[in-house]
Nucleic acid binder design. Structure first.
Lengths: 205, 205, 205, 205
DNA sequence: TATGAATGAGCCTTCATTCAT
DNA sequence: GATGAATGAAGGCTCATTCAT
């Protein structure tokens, strides 16, 4: 008896030969969606297996524990998201335009990947974060730091630490995206544009 | 049937002798700290009882279920925090000064109540929020909305929805407070001041 | 705060000086009624205390354990009921009449003491019976045995063991009383009379 | 979602190979015996699992709750017993003989299934009865009513309601069976025969 | 003597994980 | 490799019993 199975989103850049095994992918995707809906503890391994269309034991062929699965879902999101944020970035562009693109890419990524967004919110507010190797957390930090540095040097942006920069520039849009996903506001282009202006004013020189 | 118990708002008589029973207080405090540390599901009733120094059954003399306890901890935080945010607000003051005070009060409240901060982050990303009566959630929204309206009318702040205002004005400091509590930055007065400047630039006319 | 308390039925033959203490009596009565309604496990000590109008700890001043209380309720019922069953019995009467009176007294007792009836049914089908000293169980057995013996000797009733006698003569009316209390039949005088005739035919010579 | 499980009537295919799963059967049997010994509340799920030789969690693969298990044990007993009571009944036989067979079959069933007997006594004196669909309770009532009606019409039995009939005809033997199982009498063939005579005299015309 | 707040053993149930097939 | 029945540790909660007042 082979139930529904394998309703996965498309993103999986055809790795050379054997990419991610089909079932592993299905499990990750199921976990991602279920955590977004029901939270970590609201999501049992049976639910995951069922939604992924695999047997309960199969999960453990790919992941040692549920915790490891969670961490791997996190990795996946980071991988997917990462490629989008700096998309279209170009050292030749004016710095304000570069920052604008990064900002909009971020907003787009958060808006279009609702499940991932909620997963991350849960994740960052859970004991799991502590298990993420710092290097993973910094993967975006480095290029972002370089961009900031360039902008500061060019006196386009005021001098500030990276932490302050991220807070002023990104925190507002993240909050609005949450409200959007919760149905509390409609984050359309117009609002997005005005949000960007505020964020820009917060950091510009 | 047992007497009143279990329904009693947190802040009552100016606690000359005995307001909230000692044990109830200990349980609420234990829950607050443990949830901040281990999350809702990482916190068992046994852990709570143990940290509060009471028997496992005692929790249920004060709270019908673990869920009710969680909701009551939330109420307590709201009660405590609420009184601080508009402290020193005065209609006579210039609007920038009024906004500044509210902003700083908020930052202070978040900074000094580490456990409460983490508890709230967990809470807002959990199914529990749905059980909070909307009126409770709006208790700060209303006065904040009035303040915003006044500032906009006086052309001190750009015209914007309350949602955008809250995102631009408060989200950055909330993010920095989290980083501070996680040991990723030190949110001292100097940084706080520069953060405020950014937030102010984000909204000012 | 002294709630309702002490709504007890009247039966308590004024013992010489100090009868049963008032609270003990209230506790026994509360237990009797509650067990009839909710069964042994459906009846918590808090419910008992509450219905008896005493503190939870007070029960343990009169009864060592809940089990002992149950046993004592049983004793009380036996005491009350016993005095009724042989009421009006008279060695001078014809044997059929004597048996008839005992039978009707039994039916009356079972019909008018609904709570006691249900308590006993629960009791006899529980592990508690094993704790009743055999002598208590036999308290009615002896006079009943004597009556049976006389009837057999007079060839009014066929020769049979006491067990068989009790089964044939009393079991049917007990079953009908249960149905009556459960609302499945109405055990009025007419039906009672026809029941007696059947029981009589079952044993008569 | 798991396959069928949990809703399946007891008696099905002529069990050539495998009808009711082995463990489900073991759990039902353990429950039956333990309730007979210790009552419903005296029987913990751990005891059941232990006696059935399965893990504590296994119970819940077959039964949603302890209550459901209890109800299902009841169903099983009814299924097993039901087939026995009217065994050998035949419309061609004289009515007295038909009644005699039903009576003996009943006695046999009660005598040979000690645990089931005690289970039923507990069951009928518990809140669980209320959860049995009336149709199930009446499954024997109907054919028994027809038999009674035929006997009355043929003037073999006096005119009487079914309730009275059941009380006069069956209650005595049920009481004796209880005493037998409790070791208070020995219900051998001889006693059984004399009991029948009494019951018969109670109802015959 | 009477109280009722406090206790903690024990209950029912869930669910991450294992392993025979 | 894949399965899903089975497991049992752990969780939330109840309640008979105790004891300081």
């Amino acid at each position: 008896m082979a139930p529904t199975r394998s309703q996965r989103s498309a993103t999986q850049q055809a790795r050379p030969t054997r990419g991610v095994p089909e079932k592993e992918e299905a499990i990750v995707q199921a976990m991602l969606e279920l955590v977004a809906e029901h939270g970590f503890h609201g999501t049992s391994t049976d639910m995951i297996a069922s939604r992924a269309g695999v047997g309960a034991g199969t999960i453990y062929r790919y992941f040692a524990t549920k915790d490891e699965l969670i961490l791997r879902v996190y990795d996946r999101i980071k991988g997917d998201g990462g490629s989008q944020i700096f998309k279209g970035d170009d050292l030749e562009l004016p710095l304000r335009e570069r920052l604008r693109r990064v900002w909009r890419n971020t907003a787009q990524a958060l808006l279009t990947q609702r499940s991932a967004f909620f997963f991350l919110e849960q994740f960052y507010n859970s004991p799991y974060v502590k298990q993420v190797p710092p290097e993973t957390l910094e993967r975006f930090a480095r290029p972002m730091g370089q961009l900031l540095e360039a902008a500061v040097r060019a006196q386009v942006v005021r001098e500030m630490s990276q932490a302050l920069f991220e807070a002023l520039f990104f925190a507002p849009v993240m909050m609005l995206v949450r409200m959007h996903h919760l149905g509390q506001v409609v984050l359309d282009d117009s609002l997005l544009e005005r949000t960007f202006e505020g964020c820009w004013n917060a950091i510009r020189n």
